[in-house]
Simulated scan of single mutants.
Amino acid sequence: MFNVPVRPKVVCLCGSLRFGREFASERTRLTLDLAIVLAPEGTEASVLDPLLVRALGELHLRRIDLADEVRIVNPGGYIGEATRREIAYANALGKPVTYFHEPAIGDS
């Protein structure tokens, strides 16, 4: 029998949405570890209004605010500009940042 913790760990996934399979894998793994998983959602629209893109980026920072840990989904070590901003934001808040694939030294 599994016992859900009174206060489950909340993990926010960050990274490029082009890694959809890896996001799904991490979401499943963390859920089976009885964590609450927060993550961005991909959209079907190929070109979004720049104001909406900015608002979605801010929304993701609010997910980081709620998280106990930030997990970077970065197959092959890839970390884009937006993810770097999210890592810096999490670091400024003192949130632990973990990686799907450890970046090269000086890369984060």
Results as ranks from 00 to 15, higher is better:
Arg7Glu: 13
Ala90Asn: 01
Leu51Arg: 06
Leu34Val: 06
Glu58Asn: 09
Val10Thr: 15
Ala24Cys: 08
Ser16Val: 05
Thr83Met: 02
Ala88Phe: 01
Tyr89Leu: 04
Arg18Val: 14
Phe19Met: 09
Val47Lys: 12
Gly15Lys: 00
Glu81Leu: 11
Ile79Pro: 03
Leu32Asp: 14
Ile72Cys: 13
Val70Thr: 08
Ser108Tyr: 01
Leu61Trp: 01
Val6Thr: 11
Asn74Trp: 03
Phe100Asn: 04
Pro103His: 00
Thr28Pro: 00
Ala55Cys: 05
Ile64Val: 14
Ser108Met: 02
Ala67Pro: 07
Glu26Thr: 09
Ala67Arg: 00
Ile79Arg: 01
Leu51Lys: 05
Val10Glu: 05
Leu52Lys: 14
Cys12Asn: 10
Tyr99Thr: 02
Gly77Asn: 01
Lys95Gly: 08
Ala39Cys: 06
Glu26Tyr: 05
Val11Asp: 02
Leu51His: 06
Ser16Gln: 08
Thr28Val: 10
Arg84Ser: 13
Ala67Gly: 05
Phe100His: 13
Phe23Arg: 03
Leu93His: 07
Arg18Asn: 11
Ile64Ala: 02
Glu41His: 12
Pro75Thr: 08
His101Gln: 12
Phe19Gly: 09
Pro8Arg: 08
Asn74Cys: 10
Arg27Thr: 14
Asp49Arg: 09
Glu69His: 04
Leu48Pro: 07
Thr43Met: 11
Phe2Ser: 07
Gly94Phe: 05
